[in-house]
Simulated assay, not measured.
Amino acid sequence: MDGMTDEATTPILTVEGAIATIRLNRPRVHNRIEPADLLALSGHLAAIEADAGIRVAILTGTGKSFSSGYHLGDLAARPGAEVTARADGPSFEGVATQLENLRVPVICRLNGGVYGGSTDLALCCDFRIGVDTAEMMMPAAKLGVHYYPSGMLRYVSRLGLNAAKKLFLTAETIKAPEMLAIGYLTEMLPAEALDARVRALAERIAAMAPLAVQGIKRSLNEIARQDFDEAGALARANASQASEDLKEGLAAFREKRAPVFHGR
């Protein structure tokens, strides 16, 4: 999945059945994210959102690193690059929010190190499956950057205040076992087991009832942000109880067979 290509490109989207994969593709600069990549990422996320046949997405990188973060040259030339959109593309924060709010669950396949803003992109995903040689660092304070609000909120809500303070206020690099211990990694695996595990998880999620999965994801993210729309969650729960998917799930349970869901 992470084979090198002849030249760097903007992120690549592939769709195989119900599974979409977005791959960052600048391996020689450790998949550094350029302004053009934000535009491409936003377009890919919009395409996934609009395709009802897609039930799960994977975000990964080409080569030995997941991503070295946002291009510092653009940040130096345009200090608002993280939070302010430009005429030819969105802001980094905007793409992160779009990723977090994606209709379908997202698995981050962490094939290597993850640094800077890309640590937040991974936190926007619902699962982070990483190799046991991975590491992470958040250098914002070391560079003089006060991080954008939604990114700090994700850090605290996903990892807890103590872990967020350590990562933001010390800019220390932590290794995969500590990433697992603080909850940054959902699972830690040897490199040779990564693809099989990510694929198995994606297929498991894709086989579940999409209305229920997508509704529950939305509600859980709202709870984590402390902006839970209880009325909206209740409406989604009522809709699921009236769905054909629920009838199919109960029938499959009675008949001791795998259910076939259609998202309606």
Rank of each mutant, 00 (worst) to 15 (best):
P105W: 15
M136N: 02
L143G: 00
G151V: 09
Y115G: 02
L167G: 00
R128A: 00
T170M: 01
A163K: 10
K142N: 14
H146M: 09
L99G: 05
S118C: 10
D126C: 08
N111R: 01
F168H: 09
C124V: 09
L99S: 04
A141I: 04
V145K: 02
T170Q: 03
P105A: 06
K175G: 05
A164L: 12
L153P: 00
T97D: 03
S118A: 15
K175L: 11
P149F: 14
K175E: 10
A134N: 05
P105Q: 15
L153M: 13
V106R: 05
P177L: 04
S157T: 15
S118P: 07
T97H: 06
D120W: 13
D132G: 04
A122R: 03
L153D: 02
L167M: 04
L123Y: 13
P149W: 15
L121T: 14
A140W: 15
V131T: 08
N111T: 15
T119C: 05
C125I: 13
Y155C: 00
M136F: 09
E172F: 12
V156G: 00
M136C: 07
L110W: 11
Y155L: 05
A171P: 12
L143Q: 02
L99D: 06
F127R: 05
Y155W: 13
A141F: 13
A140M: 07
M137K: 15
A171M: 07
V104K: 09
P177N: 11
M152F: 11
S150G: 02
D126V: 05
N162S: 10
V114G: 00
E172H: 10
G130V: 13
R128Y: 10
I107C: 04
C124H: 08
E100Y: 13
H146Y: 11
L161F: 05
A122L: 13
V114E: 06
P105I: 11
R109M: 12
M136D: 01
D120G: 03
T119D: 02
H146A: 02
L159D: 01
T133V: 14
V156K: 08
